[in-house]
């Protein structure tokens, strides 16, 4: 039970929800950039949300399935195809042995997630499957996926193979997930004030709230650099280093901004003018270079409510997916 990389992509890595608890060692949480899409990918194939998925950037790899496999693809839309036929995102799909999954064209989004029934069978490093590229540990040998890599699965999808119709390479199951409000208004990103927000000049606060910022091509899993008007503080006090988090918006010495993403370093000394709310990180993770961001200020109460609502929606989806898949087992 496995899949094989027959052509490598730009950056395809095994990830899960990260390895919290090691920040004191300088080891960041890491994990998937879009936690919503990755969790839904696992739910669709009947997995626990903490199973490893493959995070795929465009241009993506080509994957050969060595057995009949129940898979799902969520997140960015790269025109996923099995052999010559397009397949839907956000659906469980039974794939026939020897079919090839590939991603010919970028439609929208920045990364997509591939989950397989049972999850990928790789060793954990510090309680997580996530690939830590700098440490060279976690995921598949601590590195991105390369040609010839064979990634084993924990479980077989044999129960689902009977759903394949003769002559068809795959069968998309009838149900899918509606992502609701998660990715609506993709360019409107909510933030709460950071500790150094008050140090911005009035003009800079106004510019931050009113102007648009563009995602710079030098953006990666560590951080999104933004292009926009230069922002200034009323006094340029040096800060001693302290912790930063996924979504922290830092003001760089040149007046430009960086938003820290999943692979951010654990500590930093740049002024924190704001923090993107957790419920909007999936949306942000799907923005691409040259996409525009409009920051909208909210407060901690609203940020918490939106995150809790998003989690409740995920809990409902998890139950619904489990019930649907269980009904298939019964029919067999």
């Amino acid at each position: 039970m496995s899949l094989t990389i027959i052509k490598p992509g730009l950056l395809d890595t095994l990830q899960d929800l990260g390895r919290p608890g090691y920040g004191g060692l300088g080891i960041n949480r890491g994990g998937v950039m879009d936690r919503y899409a990755a969790q839904v990918a696992n739910m669709l194939v009947g997995n626990e949300v903490r199973e490893a998925v493959i995070e795929i950037h465009f241009p993506g790899a080509q994957f050969l399935f060595e057995q009949n496999t129940l898979i799902s693809i969520t997140g960015g839309h790269f025109n996923a195809m099995l052999n010559d036929e397009p397949i839907p995102l956000w659906h469980p799909i039974v794939v026939r042995k020897n079919a090839v999954l590939h991603f010919p064209k970028l439609q929208n989004g920045n990364r997509c997630y591939l989950a397989v029934h049972g999850g990928f069978c790789v060793p954990q490093w510090l309680n997580s499957y996530s690939t830590h590229l700098k440490a060279g540990a976690g995921g598949f040998h601590g590195r991105k996926l390369e040609k010839g890599d064979e990634i084993p699965f924990k479980e077989s999808s044999i129960y689902f193979a009977g759903l394949l119709k003769p002559g068809k390479e795959f069968e998309a199951l009838k149900w899918g997930v509606d992502t609701g409000s998660t990715y609506l208004h993709p360019n409107e990103i909510f933030f709460i004030e950071g500790n150094e927000w008050e140090q911005l000049t009035y003009q800079s606060q106004k510019a931050f709230l009113q102007d648009n910022f563009t995602v710079h091509p030098f953006s990666d899993r560590m951080g999104y650099q933004l292009k926009g008007v230069d922002l200034h503080r009323s006094a340029n006090t040096e800060l001693v280093s302290s912790a930063v988090s996924f979504g922290t918006i830092q003001l760089l010495p040149n007046g430009q901004l960086i938003v820290l993403m999943a692979d951010h370093q654990t500590t930093g000394g740049y002024p924190r003018i704001g923090h993107v709310i957790s419920a909007h990180l999936p949306k942000l993770a799907q923005l691409r270079p040259s996409d525009v961001i409009h920051f909208i200020k909210t407060d901690i109460t609203n940020a918490e409510q939106l995150l809790i609502a998003q989690q409740q929606e995920l809990n409902i989806l998890q139950r619904a997916c489990t019930e649907r898949l269980n009904s298939l087992y019964v029919k067999h």
Binding site: G21, G24, S242, T267
Partner: peptide, 12 residues
């Protein structure tokens, strides 16, 4: 998680 820095403690 719990992170000690120079003069601060951060709890995640």
């Amino acid at each position: 998680d719990c992170l000690v820095a120079y003069s601060s403690l951060t709890v995640l």
